[in-house]
Design a protein around this nucleic acid. Structure first.
Length: 113
DNA sequence: CAATTGACCGAGG
DNA sequence: TCCTCGGCCAATT
């Protein structure tokens, strides 16, 4: 096909992990990157999630930074969509920050094994 | 083609 | 404890 090759193996891996995030749980970019083997490429996870925007099957709202802050909410359709969805799943968010983040943190390298 | 940016993270002063 | 700097890889200009 004259279409463009996906070539985003890294991206697809990110999508796969994000899709495996349990409801009511959150994870961080670095945790996903580390799980994929690219520890220092946490930024790429962010890019992947931007590309995942059109993919509604990917709960990107469950991915936050290491401190549990909704830094990427600006990239959503609506700035409040991310927080709304998190609260909808039982995750309480305060001031763009996830409450009990440490408890709700979901590490693929440990939980997913 | 080269430089800059970006949903980050970790270390150093 | 708070602030600053470098590194990572791909996409955009």
């Amino acid at each position: 096909m004259t279409e463009k090759p996906a070539k985003g193996n890294f991206f697809e891996d990110v999508y796969a992990v994000v899709r495996l995030i349990p409801k009511g749980r959150v994870t961080s970019y670095g945790a996903i990157a580390s799980y994929l083997g690219s520890k220092g490429s946490a930024r790429m996870v962010g890019w992947a999630l931007i590309a995942s925007q059109p993919f509604t099957n990917i709960p990107a709202h469950r991915v936050v930074n290491r401190i549990g802050m909704l830094t990427g909410k600006q990239h959503f359709e609506d700035a409040n969509a991310m927080q709304e969805r998190l609260e909808q799943e039982g995750v309480r968010v305060t001031n763009n920050q996830v409450a009990n983040f440490k408890e709700l943190f979901w590490d693929p390298a440990k939980e997913l094994l």
